[in-house]
Write a protein that binds this DNA or RNA. Sequence first.
DNA 1: CAAAACCCTACCAAGTAGATAGATTTTATA
DNA 2: TATAAAATCTATCTACTTGGTAGGGTTTTG
Lengths: 138, 138
Amino acid sequence: MLSHKAKYALKALLYLAEQDENHISKTIEIADGANIPKKFLEQILLDLKRGRFVSSKQGKFGGYYLIKSKNDITLAEIHRLFDGAIALLPCASLNFYEPCSDCKTEEECSLRHGLMIIRNETLKAMQNITIASLINKK
Amino acid sequence: MLSHKAKYALKALLYLAEQDENHISKTIEIADGANIPKKFLEQILLDLKRGRFVSSKQGKFGGYYLIKSKNDITLAEIHRLFDGAIALLPCASLNFYEPCSDCKTEEECSLRHGLMIIRNETLKAMQNITIASLINKK
DNA sequence: CAAAACCCTACCAAGTAGATAGATTTTATA
DNA sequence: TATAAAATCTATCTACTTGGTAGGGTTTTG
């Protein structure tokens, strides 16, 4: 399941993507528009900034804006940024790989192969869902 | 990600599926064979029993055995039993549906449609992974 | 009748999620 | 240059969940 953070991040990105080109959105604007607790959203926006999805302008009339095309922001990326691995176990993960500690037969745990199939399918689907695609289907 | 419970459950089922027909496995046997803390495994086996995947025989020479074919036990079922919904948000779930509380535009939240596509793909993949298929690919 | 298993309830420690609060820095402009 | 508005930083809090452990009680069967 997605964390609230990831869900809010998606909604915030969706909000930003719907604004006019060159428009800069204040945190409070996004919070109201997407129904997200403002102080919580602050942290999320900073994370999105660190992840290079958005950038910000400080000071008066500052705010946030997208720096990545809404066609190029995928659900997979947001999941990884906020909720980590897409695979069901670390040993089946591409970006968050860790060997399982409890596998006697190291290297080839009994679940790994099956979980990698699932991860592949899920990843493919998640890479197909972009912010742009979410807007169209709303 | 899978919880330890779900992972241990899969490993326990795998262990049971690998035994000779009519063999009954003691808890301690499974715990040693699959490297699972014994007392924790007890709870998991009870859950699997309630879920009608295994049954048990009490008393001396008692233990656990599969009552569902290893071809019919899917990863999707085990996930749902131990970790709940397969969808990324409750509003996109088949078996654990709940409306989202924070969506202004109730009924059609902006994420729902995309998340249902993902859930469909993931579910399809998870229904294809059975205990039997895991054994073959080990 | 006691050994060996199943079965149950309670508890606990550590970590995480989901926030909230307040101070500080940056910037535009009057 | 003062001030207001905005992002940014740091810290804290509470409730819940996870991954177990403890210690029995109950039932079956050799």
